[in-house]
Amino acid sequence: MTDVGLNPILIVDDSDDDCEAMMRALKRGTDVANPIVRFDNGQAALDYILAPRSDGNPGPGPRPALVLLDLNMPGVDGRQVLRAIKADESSRTVPVVVLTTSDDDWDIHNCYAEGASTYIKKPVELDGFFKAVGVLKDYWLQVALLPKA
């Protein structure tokens, strides 16, 4: 598993059920060593990632190793979160995986245009969801080399 200094994996999703399933899928098989931090709204995620700390560096916590982002949330939605992460030089290289129910061509095109690393439609069935997150976990945390800063 990647550790990138054991930087956290952020889940940004307002659905408690989807978040619980994602966490179970991430812990299934080989446990993820990285801490998992969940935000149920886009503004809280942006505050964590982008708000300046007292030392002048961005974010109150460690730089995320990976962001798993839902698009359809009230308030600051996933599209706005993606745009803000990729617009900020300090977070631009953080991989953002869009994991959402939308398979709309406009959403897919625009998320990639805004810098999404991957776009995955959430499977409806739990087994399919576990399989999708398992493949995602294997690729992003075992195969891909992630930036340290």
Results as ranks from 00 to 15, higher is better:
residue 67 V to D: 04
residue 41 N to D: 15
residue 39 F to N: 01
residue 27 K to H: 08
residue 111 C to V: 11
residue 96 V to W: 07
residue 25 A to W: 00
residue 34 N to Y: 06
residue 77 D to R: 08
residue 52 P to A: 14
residue 34 N to G: 10
residue 85 I to T: 01
residue 67 V to S: 07
residue 96 V to H: 09
residue 114 E to P: 05
residue 77 D to I: 08
residue 29 G to S: 13
residue 104 D to Q: 14
residue 31 D to W: 03
residue 107 D to Q: 01
residue 106 W to K: 07
residue 77 D to F: 08
residue 37 V to R: 09
residue 28 R to S: 08
residue 46 L to D: 07
residue 24 R to N: 08
residue 81 V to R: 00
residue 100 T to N: 05
residue 54 S to P: 00
residue 66 L to E: 07
residue 82 L to H: 00
residue 24 R to D: 10
residue 36 I to C: 00
residue 106 W to I: 15
residue 59 G to K: 04
residue 89 E to G: 13
residue 29 G to P: 04
residue 91 S to F: 02
residue 63 R to A: 07
residue 45 A to V: 04
residue 52 P to V: 14
residue 26 L to Y: 02
residue 41 N to K: 08
residue 95 P to R: 04
residue 74 P to Q: 01
residue 66 L to R: 03
residue 50 L to Y: 06
residue 32 V to D: 06
residue 43 Q to A: 05
residue 91 S to L: 07
residue 35 P to E: 07
residue 63 R to E: 01
residue 90 S to H: 06
residue 43 Q to H: 05
residue 90 S to W: 10
residue 40 D to Q: 15
residue 100 T to W: 03
residue 101 T to I: 12
residue 82 L to P: 04
residue 113 A to L: 08
residue 34 N to H: 05
residue 53 R to A: 13
residue 98 V to G: 13
residue 44 A to N: 03
residue 113 A to K: 11
residue 105 D to T: 15
residue 40 D to T: 12
residue 93 T to G: 04
residue 30 T to S: 14
residue 63 R to M: 12
residue 103 D to P: 13
residue 113 A to W: 04
residue 76 V to L: 09
residue 37 V to I: 11
residue 50 L to V: 03
residue 88 D to T: 08
residue 105 D to N: 12
residue 89 E to Y: 13
residue 36 I to G: 01
residue 82 L to I: 04
residue 29 G to A: 14
residue 68 L to V: 07
residue 62 P to Q: 12
residue 62 P to K: 10
residue 39 F to A: 01
residue 89 E to T: 15
residue 95 P to T: 09
residue 96 V to P: 06
residue 25 A to C: 03
residue 99 L to D: 10
residue 115 G to W: 01
residue 80 Q to E: 15
residue 39 F to T: 01
residue 75 G to E: 14
residue 87 A to W: 08
residue 65 A to T: 05
residue 106 W to V: 14
residue 80 Q to P: 09
residue 55 D to Y: 06
residue 27 K to I: 00
residue 34 N to Q: 10
residue 29 G to I: 12
residue 111 C to E: 07
residue 31 D to P: 00
residue 61 G to I: 05
residue 38 R to P: 01
residue 73 M to I: 03
residue 100 T to S: 15
residue 58 P to H: 02
residue 77 D to S: 11
residue 91 S to K: 00
